[in-house]
Design a protein around this nucleic acid. Sequence first.
DNA 1: CTGTTAGCGCGTTCAA
DNA 2: TTGAACGCGCTAACAG
Lengths: 334, 334
Amino acid sequence: MTVTIYDVAREAGVSMATVSRVVNNNPNVKPATRKKVYEAIERLGYRPNAVARGLASKKTTTVGVVIPDISNAIFAEVARGIEDIANMYHYNIILCNADKKKDKEIRVINTLLEKQVDGLLFMGGAVTDEHLQAFKTANVPIVLCATSDESGQIPSVDINHEDAAYDAVKNLLEQGHTRIAMISGTLQDPSIGYARFQGYKRALENAGIAYDDTLVRIGNYRYESGADAMKYFIELDKRPTAVFSATDEMAIGAIHSIQDHGLKVPSDISVISVDNSRMASMVRPQLTAVAQPMYDIGAVSMRLLTKLMKKENVDQSKVVLPHEIVVRQSVGGV
Amino acid sequence: MTVTIYDVAREAGVSMATVSRVVNNNPNVKPATRKKVYEAIERLGYRPNAVARGLASKKTTTVGVVIPDISNAIFAEVARGIEDIANMYHYNIILCNADKKKDKEIRVINTLLEKQVDGLLFMGGAVTDEHLQAFKTANVPIVLCATSDESGQIPSVDINHEDAAYDAVKNLLEQGHTRIAMISGTLQDPSIGYARFQGYKRALENAGIAYDDTLVRIGNYRYESGADAMKYFIELDKRPTAVFSATDEMAIGAIHSIQDHGLKVPSDISVISVDNSRMASMVRPQLTAVAQPMYDIGAVSMRLLTKLMKKENVDQSKVVLPHEIVVRQSVGGV
DNA sequence: CTGTTAGCGCGTTCAA
DNA sequence: TTGAACGCGCTAACAG
């Protein structure tokens, strides 16, 4: 039924070793022989069995990717960066959604390891001791991608989320705002939640503004939660003149909420966020945001992983990509 | 270095066959033996090698997914549906972006087949003879997902794109519009481009309205192209009173373009589209659209694939999922 | 430049 | 209920 390297060998009148050589582009084959083999391959419709190859060579040319949720635009962008580079180096990726749930993450890491992936890209929630434990039993390289790692032992590529938030809020401060609210993600989420919240606090502190927790609402990253948070702020006695949102989507919810209350962005209330997803320029007014280079985070982490897999030595195993503020129309002076 | 089934056997004082049985939940093992084996596994930190398993059993419990572009929200949603169901049936997915390019598609199909996937989910552009050819050499089941197939020989799950477009335009017609423009995708794209364009024409025809090709612009699915097309329509001598867009994103571009020209949606110009992505409710006015159940398309196609892989017989190998119109605020009477 | 020979780690008969 | 032995399809020395 299935044609093997052995069939090709017989058809071409050579040994299977020779067939293996031509399939693997080993130069030690006489051109004439090579030609014979290629013809036999063609005639028989031979297709190399990567599983057998993987068993014999202990390399599968596939890497595992654990991601929170591929249907989230931000992560999908990272995934595209990963896949493009993987493709470039002839790797395939096995994609697993884990929704930032620790149990699910540990589980998929293990099945990925069972599948003998040559490396692992981990994008998740907090990296706990259990994660570290699982990583340790892997004897393949791992790089964290858009995920922070308190321990600092695992190679990683991300932006500095706290600085990004800090810069966003600083921008508001520079426009003269002093009553600045925040729509945060859950503080359990280390990078997007906690770090950005810390950046917000630090920026206020540096400006000598007292932190006021009535000006902070926790959202769930969705549009509606941004709108809800904004509604709350608007109804405050002393409403804020500017809002910092941890993500674009919540920021857009906030903008629409402001407009629905008959107020204007940015003249009544300014809005800024971190992400700069494609949606940022698809609202009116267009959203000013600190850009998170998601595609690059994916691409760079995959590139780093290829180096690790090839045992090349890397000078930087913890890379922090730069972020920058993209000024559009949602922020104005006070 | 790596601990094998053989090490476990020795540690537990049984044969490797027995270890294999307990790992595979074969009932023919005495509980006491099973326990011994489990303990040995635990002690040694044994992890089954799925590659070796795949070679021996000729099953990899992984399926290949070729997708146009994972960073596109629509496809990412499908992918999530696929992965959820795959996960449920203990399959993993290898994800390959192919950008609807035929060459790339053929290439990844082949490498996926080399990797011995147990099945293939294909989401691409047109299904050509070359595709059919590649599919034929696969001896694993294949299902087309959100992709049309002229030949009708391959199992598939999709919506009826022409009907969806027809229904969208009909909605406009029912509101009394007669000058209806269309922002189309490329006609080379069978489902989103060509089929939706045909639906548009058929709806006009049924209403006795002559087709006017000055009222059709081809976009590239992006926001900007929608805005550009709309700009063109607005500057027409006899501008349309309604616009049908092949996708949400272009529709949103159109809405903003209308607003930028000082006109209003829907009182001056109505807008409708097909997709109903999350963004549809993230614009003002919120977008009325025919809903494409992307998650379900992914989930159902994966479910179908599992049946095919298990050689269960399926009554429907060509499933067409229903679409429905989601009325929001972007369409009004003429 | 080419062929022979071992495994790679595991599933699976077939006996016992 | 258990074990011995073979083979899955291929890579990788090692000879020649």
